[in-house]
Write a protein that binds this DNA or RNA. Structure first.
Length: 483
RNA sequence: GGCCCCGUCGUCCAGUGGCCUAGGACGCCGGCCUCUCAAGCCGGAAACGGGGGUUCAAAUCCCCUCGGGGCUGCCA
């Protein structure tokens, strides 16, 4: 039997990293088993669904490299893969269940339900639906509906009864229907609820494995009973633990970035995020922590997924991203860096400016954790001396002992250099250090600040070579005259 | 409140009765290297929530307890 898995995001918000991880696990399992991965849009919440969110989610999936075989945008044998296109089908199922008396019309209004819920809670009774309309005779109910009375449709939860199923990550689960109320299938405006739409689609699309967030675990009995009532084949379930913030609470806005797009913008590489996410709740074996996604596909099993929730650790993601950035082929790194370099420069780069960057690029690559780190490291290459040699930087320069002789000596030596390359500069300036009796640690800092405007920079000799003699002397000169 | 799920270093994982004086990774601390910063190298602190059992032997099995999370909508 070939596996069919789906991810069914709801376009009521931007794509969350939790959605990304759930999608990743579904995708890994589909790829591991040679099955089919499907993307369906759960947009039955018409009030909150937005096309822009759908676009964000699809873009996020693509960015992560989670390609799908069937679904929105690629089509397939099951129609549009967008629930708002399938209202007719959901009504059809609901009516069929009413006819078979496994569902019934409910004439209670939202207001009535609300007051009864409040009463039940006050009295210490379970707040779920009390089943009032379940007792209405089917013929009477039909007359009332024919007469135009508004009704929702509720599922007749088999009672007494229990649902038992084997969850791939949690093992055997058993729930007494006593604790599951008669949930709404179709709203009184004829739109389906999540439970109906999702279950009907899973049955119609012949989904074999449903891997989703643990928050859906309590409603799984509803889904399996509904599936059975439809005469469908039960899927195998796997409930994946949620991702928490550092405080142990469900990951949310106050924990910082939670949208996949935010990670794109923050300069993360998709391979790094995928690698990191795959490790949240799962591990390939032993000690490996950096490994290609092909390795995850090879080894992934839903049964190996962790039961307990994981905390999203930004620091570890950052480290991992650095690993991936350093591992990039240099031309690939340059391509990725280009927009950040231009942004730092404030203008499109001329070929000459680009070659300045390229000279330094390997050293930048080693030092970048995030792509967004690049700008600050290269800005000094493209600005004029007034931006670098400011009153602030002069203040820092003069705070170093011997700053003045260092700068004067350097100007003299660099002016007379035959070749202005990294080796010549280094030889020359080390000669200066000897002459002044200074070690490199102390003696080079004033120059670094005068050249780059900061005490932290790429290696100095290479930076000078990339900048070119004229600019270097210009900055040193500006520094000397302002001290 | 009720129902369900979960509980190994700060964090993510390994560990499925003896190989555990509990292993790795991130982070943290210290050192080395070093022109700053990274990277790299070396070293260190750091956990089986608690209590009872079962067993020759328990992080691993059972019970209780405590703690955390989820659900409890005509949201998904």
């Amino acid at each position: 039997m070939t596996t069919r898995l789906r991810v069914a995001p709801s376009p009521t918000g931007a794509m969350h990293v939790g959605t990304g991880r759930t999608a990743l696990f579904n995708w890994l399992f589909a790829r591991h088993t040679g099955g089919t991965f499907i993307v369906r849009i759960d947009d039955t919440d018409t009030a909150r669904s937005e096309k822009a969110f759908e676009d964000d989610i699809l873009a996020g999936l693509r960015w992560l490299g989670l390609d799908w075989d069937e679904g929105v945008g690629v089509g397939g044998p099951h129609g549009s893969y967008r629930q708002s296109d399938r209202y007719g089908r959901y009504e059809e199922v609901a009516e069929k269940l009413i006819a078979e008396e496994t569902a019934y019309p409910c004439f209670c209004t939202p207001g009535e339900l609300e007051t009864r819920r409040a009463e039940a809670e006050a009295a210490g009774r379970p707040p779920g639906y009390d089943g009032r309309c379940r007792a209405i005779d089917a013929v009477d109910a039909r007359h009332r509906r024919n007469a135009g009375e508004r009704a929702a449709v509720r599922f007749k939860m088999p009672r007494p009864g229990t649902t038992e199923f084997v969850d791939l990550v949690r093992g055997e689960i058993r729930v007494d229907h006593q604790h599951v109320d008669d949930f709404v299938l179709l709203r009184s405006d004829r739109r389906p609820t999540y439970h109906l739409a999702s279950t009907v689609d899973d049955v119609d699309y012949e989904i074999t494995h449903v891997a989703r967030g643990e928050d859906l675990l309590p409603s799984t009995p509803r889904h399996v009973q509904l599936t059975l009532a439809m005469g469908g084949k039960e899927a195998t379930y796997a409930h994946i633990p949620l991702i928490n913030g550092p405080d142990g609470k469900r990951l949310s806005k106050r924990h910082g970035a939670q949208g996949v797009t935010e990670y794109v913008d923050a300069g993360y590489l998709p391979e790094a995020l995928v690698n990191y996410l795959s490790l949240l709740g799962w591990s390939p074996s032993g000690d490996a922590s950096i490994f290609p996604v092909t390795e995850s596909i090879r080894l992934f099993e839903l049964t190996d997924v962790q039961k307990n929730p994981a905390v999203f650790d930004r620091a570890k993601l950052d480290w991992m991203n650095g690993e991936y950035v350093r591992a990039l082929p240099s031309d690939r790194f340059n391509d990725l860096a280009a927009p950040y370099v231009e942004q730092a420069a404030g203008h499109p780069l001329s070929p000459e400016e680009w070659s300045r960057f390229e000279q330094l690029s390997p050293l930048i690559q080693e030092r970048a954790k995030l792509l967004t780190d690049i700008g600050d490291q290269v800005r000094f290459l493209f600005v004029d001396h007034d931006t670098v040699v400011t009153p602030e930087t002069i203040g820092i320069i003069v705070s170093f002992p011997e700053a003045k002789p260092i700068i004067e000596n350097a100007i003299e030596r660099l002016t007379s250099l035959a070749e202005f390359d990294h080796e010549s500069i280094e030889t020359s300036l080390r000669g200066m250090l000897d002459e002044l009796g200074l070690n490199a640690r102390k003696g080079l800092q004033p120059l670094r600040v005068a050249i780059t405007g900061s005490t932290v920079s790429p290696p100095l000799f290479e930076s000078m070579a990339a900048l070119g003699r004229e600019t270097v002397l210009d900055r040193l000169d500006a520094a000397r005259s302002r001290m």
